[in-house]
Amino acid sequence: MKSLEELDIRGDLVYTQTHEWTRRTGDTAQVGVDDYAQSALGDIVYVELPSVGATVNAGAAFGSLESTKAVSDLYSSVTGKVVAVNETLSDSPELVNTSPYEDGWVIEVEMANPKELDALMKSDDYLSFVKTLAPIE
């Protein structure tokens, strides 16, 4: 996996301890997997997505990522209703590896409580956090 120096951690996003990023646009949150997680997992070959309209809860699993090595849960960073899922991942799951912050986004959530975002880590805090971690399995 990438070294800390190679990691692409974006300043305009907030992060969970389970390595999801969140991008806010008004009351909508776009959620994806960050560079640390995609690099640690290796090639992503399948993404299990929720349906549009499903309810997700902050900290709860909403789907999974299948890498050649393992299966990993995807956790929502916020509570709310899924208003969009990235359908292109069904055909091209590798976008999670090649473009984790843009084309590889996973879901968009209409937030029930945007204040939940305040509890997430900003990029500096997140970088300090990943420095404390052993590589994820």
Binding site: G42, D43, V45, T68, K69, E94, N97
Partner: peptide, 12 residues
């Protein structure tokens, strides 16, 4: 090595 920077899918 589990895989190299090429990735296990392309290696397979």
């Amino acid at each position: 090595p589990l895989w190299y920077s090429t990735g296990s899918v392309r290696e397979h």
